[in-house]
Computed example of a mutant assay.
Amino acid sequence: MYITITPQKLGSKYAQSSADFVGYLEKENQGLKQQEMEHFFNQYSDEIPAEEVVKEIDGNTAKLKKKEPKFYSITVSPSKYELNRLQNNSQDLKTYTRELMKDYVASFNREINGRAITIDEIKYYAKIEYQRTFKGTDKEIRENQPYATKIVQLKNKIRTIEQGRREGDIKWMEKQIAKLERQAPHQQNGKRIVQGMPKSGNQSHIHIIVSRKDASNTFSLSPGSKHKASEVKMHGKKVKRGFDRDTFFAKAEKTFDKTFGYKRNFAETYKARKTFVKNTNAYFNALMKLPANEKALAFKIIGKTGMPILPNIPVSQTQLALRVFKRLRRGAEVAIKSSSIGI
């Protein structure tokens, strides 16, 4: 489970309207009939029109300055193992979203009129998407890039030959292009993976737009607060403040597991990913103490993330393996950032 919470920006400035973001989330509905479309939903309603989402989010920004985020985007990306546990992607992910947003609310250390905030006091809209495309930052694109560069160079040469501006053997160049296409390390359905290509398999994920202001448009509820749950004195009174992101991520996993009867492996936990970055030794020791079947699954899961691990590590080579894991720390920081609030 990877969850990101980010304030929406246009370049270096915060978006003053949710219209562009909502429009972006409508992309999978293009060309579909009304009954085939995936609609926005919230805690109690389904099939909410995009226009209503924009109107409600944009109209809930009282007293917020231009330099402050008006809304946050939460992206929830279950792993393929988690998705395989679902019976009905659309309905199950809606059910999970509604439970997840209760966890979101519970992670605020805030009170409204002297009581803890509830799910009814936040304004959010969610949408399920089923497709993902390869981006320039993906490992597959980065490692295919040298081949892509050579292919582009050869195609440019062929073009200049066809235009009569140079001489050369076009057939030989076309054979070289075909060879490079096959040699590229990352392929999908027999084709070189390129930027913008749809990813195969179940890519279901959830996008959530949540207003910075509470539903009454009175109180500011920022998940980007730099303060964890704490109390401070303001005007002689104790005031609660903060959002505990660690609590939110931990609850998000437990809620999924409880809702769908999912048995989470050590390598899938937010706690494990965080330990990996902060204390490689502790992570490695915990991994090696797992029962044989759980350890085998853990290595399989880690391998799917693209990290070059040693599949079977003898006890006598513990130090060697530990050095390998330490070299992976930088790569793991990307994964842990995917499970944090990017501000």
Rank of each mutant, 00 (worst) to 15 (best):
F134W: 14
Q153L: 10
Q145V: 00
I141Q: 07
K135G: 13
E121K: 01
G136T: 09
Q131K: 10
Y124C: 06
I122N: 04
I141R: 10
K127L: 11
K127C: 10
D120R: 15
Y130S: 11
T137E: 13
K123H: 09
K157S: 10
K139Y: 04
P146M: 04
Q145M: 04
Y130I: 01
A148S: 09
D138E: 06
I141K: 12
R132H: 08
E121Q: 15
V152D: 09
T137C: 06
Y125S: 04
I151R: 00
K135L: 15
T137R: 13
E121N: 13
R142V: 12
L154S: 04
R132N: 11
K139W: 06
K150N: 03
I122A: 08
K127A: 10
Q131P: 00
I128M: 11
Y130T: 08
E140I: 00
E143S: 00
I122L: 05
K139F: 01
N144M: 03
K127G: 06
Y125M: 07
K155N: 14
E143L: 10
Y125T: 08
V152E: 13
I122M: 08
N156E: 13
Q145H: 12
E129A: 12
Q153Y: 11
I151N: 06
R142F: 05
K127D: 06
Y124D: 01
D120T: 10
E121L: 06
Y124K: 12
Y147S: 01
R132L: 04
